[in-house]
């Protein structure tokens, strides 16, 4: 089996993983969104690659050509690009609001502030003796 025939997909896979890694490992909320768009773009590559036929041309009918690439993945990806930009826009709006509410867009800062809120609720409920429980809970989440 000629393994090299798949090279295009492997490049796509590598791109996908880079994007995916940025999304889950980085803590800056904007960077996460950038990672997400890289991840999605590489999925687009994957779709477009499967529609390609060697030697074919773009699917705009013309008497000069006979072989066209598959138009269906193109249509699907057009839709997916739109969905991607919609998600990014909404995500950015959320980031802006988070910045206003927390004064930071680093995941860690936000989590610390949330944990603080949580602790206050606990103090209100049980008094100071409940500190140990709260520690456990933070680990749970």
């Amino acid at each position: 089996m000629n393994i090299l025939g798949l090279y295009n997909y492997w490049i796509v896979v590598v791109l996908m993983l880079i994007g995916f890694y940025i999304v889950i490992a980085h803590e800056n909320l904007i960077k996460k969104l950038v990672g997400l768009s890289i991840f999605q773009t590489s999925v687009f590559f994957f779709y477009i690659s499967m529609g390609k036929i060697t030697g074919a041309t773009a699917p705009i009918l013309d008497e000069k050509y006979e072989l066209y690439s598959n138009p269906l993945p193109h249509v699907l990806i057009l839709t997916a690009i739109v969905v991607g930009i919609a998600t990014t826009a909404l995500g950015l709006a959320l980031v802006v609001r988070i910045q206003e509410a927390y004064g930071s867009i680093e995941e860690r800062d936000i989590q610390e502030q949330d944990a603080h809120d949580q602790l206050e609720c606990q103090l209100e409920a049980y008094g100071p003796s409940s500190m140990e429980i709260s520690d456990e809970q933070e680990q749970d989440e």
Partner: peptide, 10 residues
């Protein structure tokens, strides 16, 4: 990869 519309959109 022959996807002109997609390229345009991207």
């Amino acid at each position: 990869l022959d996807a002109v519309d997609v390229a345009f959109t991207e």
